[in-house]
Design a binder for these strands. Sequence first.
DNA 1: TTGAAAGCGCTAACAA
DNA 2: TTGTTAGCGCTTTCAA
Lengths: 330, 330
Amino acid sequence: MSITVKDVAKAAGVSAATVSRVINNDPRISEKTAKKVNDCIQELGYKINNVARSLKTNKTRTIGFIAPEIANDFFMNVAKGVEDELRKHGYSVIVCSSNESSTEENNRIQLLSEKCVDGLIIIPASGEGKHFNQLKEVNIPVVLADRLVANFETDAVLVDNINGSYTAVEHLINSGCRRIGFIGGDMNVTTARERYEGYRRALSDYCIPIEESIIKFGNYHVQSGYELMKELMEYPDPPQNVFISNYFMHVGATKFLMEHRDTIASNVSIASFDDMEISSILGFCSVRIRQPMIEIGSKAAQILLKRISHDYSNFPQILRLKTELITKDY
Amino acid sequence: MSITVKDVAKAAGVSAATVSRVINNDPRISEKTAKKVNDCIQELGYKINNVARSLKTNKTRTIGFIAPEIANDFFMNVAKGVEDELRKHGYSVIVCSSNESSTEENNRIQLLSEKCVDGLIIIPASGEGKHFNQLKEVNIPVVLADRLVANFETDAVLVDNINGSYTAVEHLINSGCRRIGFIGGDMNVTTARERYEGYRRALSDYCIPIEESIIKFGNYHVQSGYELMKELMEYPDPPQNVFISNYFMHVGATKFLMEHRDTIASNVSIASFDDMEISSILGFCSVRIRQPMIEIGSKAAQILLKRISHDYSNFPQILRLKTELITKDY
DNA sequence: TTGAAAGCGCTAACAA
DNA sequence: TTGTTAGCGCTTTCAA
């Protein structure tokens, strides 16, 4: 059916081993043979079968990327960083969604390990990571991205969430705000915890009392942001400044404010974690914390490649990338 | 190193063939043996090696997905549809970016065919598709998504772009607009051509003269939308209504208007192709054309699966999904 | 219902 | 510098 090394070997009048050596640029092959073989490869239209190669070499040059969701601007910016970096090194990426479920995440890990991927980059669905341990046995390196998990020690590329939200809240305080509402994500997710922590610390450092009633938790989705902003705004005395823990909640909150701008909310100002393309043109938004999304991915890929090549220096390596305060708005 | 069928066979006191049969749920295996083997699989923690299986069966249960860009909300919604649908059938997806280059697209096709993917779903980088033909020889089915190419006949899942933009422009006309500016994408991309066609047809059907000076072409990016809106607004007599051909240009155009709302542009109204999560809260936006993004992906996956199982009925199948006019705004 | 044996396409000792 | 040979882990005839 399809052309194999044998066919090429026969055509070139050499052995299959020689063909294989030519394909793999083995230095100890004569120029003459190399040319002859390459010509035959061209003529026959030979394509290497990487499945066979992988079976032999025990390497697939493929890695798995598991994110809680695929149609998500943040996760896919990370994915972009991963793919760009890995492709440079000849690796491909199988992308899977865990649908924000640790159970499904576990299934994907299972699946990918059976596909013999050389490594895994995971944005964990929750803070629990016991199920990652099976990978230790199969000897597949894992690098976590964006979020950390408990009960599993491995490399990770994260963002300095605490400092990020601290800086944003500090900025609000320095602009004269005293009452700052908080809209946060699911506390099972490490970033949500850390961003909340940054908020508390900033208030505490500036001796502003914590007002529990204007602190709301939900999840990192548009709908949740919408509902929590609604709750805040329906108070008799709503806060005029709100810190929101991620982009999607920010969108939801803005949606609520847009819908009700003629009634309750005309002068609310939002500070938000994340700075996506359109964050700057969302109404009500003043301050944003930019994450280096693509870099999260590329750095995770770099560490993974290092582990794949059996370099386990500095293990486990936990990288904390810096965020950036953006105050420009329109 | 890792546990193989042989190890399981030895432990269970059967042959490797029997273990394989148990794994594959071969009906003609006794319950007793099946249980015995499954127990051993459990105990030894046996994991199938899909590389070996693929070499034997000539199927990888993996497909390739090539999009012009990864960090792109539209493409990744399509990808989500693809992944969801394929996973149900036990397939995985290798995601590649062509970086909007046909040359790179060709490289990815090459790479994926060497990885022995069972099929390919491609959102083409441009309207040219000659380089897809190599896949015919290797016998890998391809389904195009969102965009069509010339010089290559295959299945495709598209959207009714002409009718989509026609409907939007018609809506503007019926609301009393006579001068409607146009901001369009790269005419090498089929969707850009079709959306322009819809615009022209609507004007023509309603006997509105085409005003070439308020028709602008760029590419589907934020920056381009920004610049083209700038060009339009800097005319002495700018159009008050503008139809924009995609979401990203819409964002860019809105950015320009936001930045200049105090000077030139206060009463511009935008109609736009695409309806993303945040389209509704972008200022200036009245009408939107919603595409069934996820469905594009899932339908493409369905057709691909059909072709993979050698069902070539109705080939080539060109599916045109309907768009939806959204007028609600805040 | 099960086993023996061959082979998928490649690479890598080892030998020459 | 090249060829011979074995084998990666699985499936699948064929035979029992």
